[in-house]
Design a binder for these strands. Sequence first.
DNA 1: GCGACAG
DNA 2: ATCTTGTCGC
Length: 261
Amino acid sequence: MTTSSSKLNSNSTVLWTQTQAELLARRDPTDRLSFTPTAPFPGLTLIGGVDISYPRNTTSTAIVALTILSYPSLTQLYLQTHQIPITEPYISGFLAFRESPAYLAAFASLRTNNPELWPQVVLVDGNGTLHPRRFGSACHLGVELDIPTIGVAKNLLYMEGMTVDAKELKHMFKEDKTLGGVGIGVNGDVCAMAVRPTAGEGATNPIFVSPGHRVSMQTAVELVRCCSRYRVPEPIRVADLHSRVVVRQLEEELEASVSAK
DNA sequence: GCGACAG
DNA sequence: ATCTTGTCGC
């Protein structure tokens, strides 16, 4: 008798759904911040960003990058990568179970080596409340660390009950050049904002911002706008670019070790 | 019914 | 996420 991997995945999914429900009970949807939750955010000086890049031809390991930028200058104060084992597959709606361990390792290192740079808010590459169970990876990391987080996704996660789809949104931003953002409702809740990328009126491909933990929708959007020079806000952009550089190095090392034997 | 599904 | 070149435009 054989055991199919899809069967294993669906079993994990049941447990993971339960875990998400438990952690959701600990999520704080309000502004519980160490700075004033209104632009230009007096008191805010340290903002974090995290992202993960995966090497081609390998599924067991990845590179996580954590960066800390000063605010409002967006100067890079810290940028560290870690090679982390990846044990779980990517399953839509359960991204945190794949990536959160890597994030936790990165933050553990920061706490040990540069505790003075512990961020006041963290931008996460993924969704917050824009999620089938209102608990995306940004919420997950936020609750685990009890740190304010904001989810920023480059693509729309489709789910039942959504008021708009990606194509409609693109149309709306194209039609109305002054449109800055569109609320994304799911079964009566506005759980995200499609935000027109900063850098002009011509851009029509939005980013999707949703609160993670200890941040309101309003504050999340405002803050993302305030640290965006390009489509992707700086903290995530810096982490993304650097993790990609390091992933290339890892790929070369892997190639070398193969040809060496 | 088919397709759409963060990274 | 990753595989991938040039190209149109500011």
